[in-house]
C-alpha cells in the first residue's frame, strides 16, 4: 500500500485525494489464490485416482498431476499478485493485471453504473473483500478488484461513488 499521493493535479481540481494513487492488493490474496490452486490440485489428483480405478495407470500419476498443478499454480498466484495494481484517478479507474496476457483497463468514472463491495465465504475467512464495478459495456461487468481489506473495499466503493457522481454522465449508455 506504499504510494505517495499525486501532488500536482490540474489547476481546477480539488486538493489531492488520498485515493488517487497506485495501489496494490492486500498480500493475503496470495493465500486465497494458493489455497484455491491447492484445492484444484487436490481435485485433479482425485480425478486421476478415480480414472486409475478403471484404466491402468502408474501409481505415481496422481501425485505427479497434483504436484505439477501446484508447481504451476503457486508461482502463478504469486506473479499474479505482483502484477496486480489499480489506481483511482479523478477521471477514471485504472487496472493493470494479468500474467500471461497483460490487461490494462481504463474505466472512465462517467461510465460507472454501480459499485458493489463483496465478501464471499473464502474472503470472509481470510479477512478480505472485493469490489466490483459495473458499466454498461458488454464486457464491463467483470471489472473486479479482489484482495482488498474490508475497509479498503468500502473505501474504494465510496470513493468511486463520490467521483462517479461528480463526473455525472447524463446518459450512461
Amino acid at each position: 500500500m506504499a504510494a505517495d499521493p499525486t501532488s500536482d493535479s490540474a489547476a481546477e481540481s480539488p486538493p489531492p485525494d488520498p485515493a488517487t494513487v497506485t495501489r496494490r492488493l492486500d498480500g493475503r490474496i496470495r493465500v486465497v489464490w494458493i489455497l484455491r490452486s491447492v484445492l484444484i490440485a487436490a481435485l485433479l489428483a482425485g480425478l486421476t485416482v478415480a480414472i486409475g480405478r478403471f484404466v491402468e495407470t502408474p501409481r505415481w500419476l496422481p501425485a505427479l498431476v497434483g504436484g505439477l498443478t501446484l508447481a504451476l499454480a503457486v508461482p502463478y498466484a504469486i506473479v499474479r499478485y505482483r502484477r496486480w495494481s489499480y489506481a483511482i484517478r479523478e477521471d477514471a479507474l485504472y487496472l493493470d493485471r494479468g500474467v500471461i496476457t497483460r490487461v490494462r483497463t481504463v474505466v472512465p468514472l462517467v461510465r460507472i453504473q454501480h459499485v458493489d463491495s463483496r465478501r464471499g465465504p473464502v474472503e470472509r475467512a481470510t479477512g478480505l473483500a472485493s469490489c466490483v464495478v459495473y458499466t454498461a459495456g458488454s464486457r464491463g461487468a467483470d471489472v473486479r478488484i479482489p484482495g482488498l481489506t474490508p475497509e479498503d473495499a468500502d473505501d474504494v466503493r465510496e470513493t468511486l461513488k463520490r467521483l462517479a457522481i461528480r463526473a455525472d454522465g447524463e446518459d450512461a449508455v
Binding site: 494479468g98 500471461i100 496476457t101 497483460r102 490487461v103 490494462r104 483497463t105 481504463v106 474505466v107 472512465p108 461510465r111 458499466t135 454498461a136 459495456g137 458488454s138 464486457r139 464491463g140 471489472v143
Partner: peptide, 14 residues
C-alpha cells in the same frame, strides 16, 4: 459511446 478501454497484451504480443 466508449464505455471502457482495455489494453491486452498476450505473451506472444509482448
Amino acid at each position: 459511446r466508449i464505455q471502457t478501454l482495455i489494453d491486452a497484451r498476450t505473451v506472444f504480443q509482448r
